[in-house]
Nucleic acid binder design. Structure first.
Lengths: 187, 187
DNA sequence: ATCAAATTTCACAAATTACTGAAAATTCAA
DNA sequence: TTGAATTTTCAGTAATTTGTGAAATTTGAT
């Protein structure tokens, strides 16, 4: 399989971006290739298209699988395993957010909670704990909110996002008079 | 300077986490040390406390500065440069989000916009472009929303977050009758 | 201007991470 | 079962990233 220039540049960009992220270059490229592919690909096709060794592709797919970013499927009359990415970009985004939370945020929250249980034995520790508490509360609030908001269906989420900072007006209702309600001026 | 066990474990954890992120271990440790420190530290103090070479600390501080995560200041009667982190954790979070957006998201948006301007010359490119458009729109909406919401003051943001998925009820007002308004049951 | 203190730069060494090819393990059709 | 097709593992090498010490540069007090 030969990549078109358009796909080529997308794939290469994702590779570079991968390293700015925590993911390695070749894994980024593999994901990008699957993401834009019309049909599921098997490992040999990927190795050929990207110029990687077969074993590297195997490792990469294992990694992508652990992130729940690829789907495995079989084609009738073909023993080989075919991979693709989920269709729904919002679902992909959600998966990514969940995995990152699990890997990068939750361990920190756990560590902070542990540290906050200790009894500070000197002023330095006391100050450190106060700082850790601030960090804990921020992370806790942010991630709880994220988890909570994932329950919303995509359309509601889109509406909320398009509303942007105008949410403020809606929130003000909680404190203010019911009579204001009528005139809803949305962009 | 000798680190207490509490601070030590916080610093080490941040170092490990740093690598799961895009940041390197020693830079993570430096940030953590400054974050919990009662007073600003100079590079020598940091090198001594963490057991790094002076030059490594210099590089790390350069990196942290480029992320706008540390403040530089001078103490009266002391030539050396003292570093600290901003106090306000919400401001820190915001800075981090802005920098990550700038480095990791904006270049991708630019690449996608470029790719979407091309005229597809075959079915594969056509499909690839459709996928890229989906990705573009998701990222664009999400980051625009993020930028927009940063205008809100912290208290409003906290209120919004604590509300969580209950925002939905507020959003429904846009479509529904004014009479519902009155009974606001918040947790 | 001079000089010592402080900081930065940079070439190299050390450590880590990524990638490969060969071998081992697994899968499934016959 | 057997054995060919396919996938995975893994030891070793290649490539990259990280960290250091020495040298160069900058800074500011005198």
């Amino acid at each position: 399989m030969n990549l078109t220039p358009l796909v080529q540049s997308f794939v290469l960009h994702f590779g570079e971006m991968g390293s700015h992220w925590g993911i390695n270059r070749t894994v980024g490229q593999m994901y990008a290739l699957l993401y834009v592919s019309e049909k599921p690909l098997n490992a040999d096709e990927m190795a050929e298209a990207l110029g990687f060794s077969r074993s590297n592709v195997s490792m990469g797919l294992k990694e992508l699988t652990s992130w729940r970013l690829v789907k495995l499927q079989h084609l009738p009359g073909d023993r080989r395993e075919y991979y693709s990415t989920p269709e729904d970009v919002w679902a992909i985004f959600q998966t990514l957010a969940e995995e990152r939370k699990k890997r990068e945020v939750d361990p920190t929250l756990t560590m902070l909670r542990g540290a906050l249980l200790e009894t500070p034995s000197n002023p330095a520790d006391e100050h450190a704990q106060a700082r850790m508490a601030e960090m804990h509360d921020l992370i806790d609030l942010t991630t709880s909110w994220f988890t909570d908001i994932q329950r919303l269906d995509v359309d509601t989420l889109k509406t909320l996002m398009k509303l942007g900072s105008q949410v403020q007006k809606f929130l003000e209702f909680k404190q203010k008079l019911p009579t204001f309600m009528g005139g809803s001026e949305t962009p």
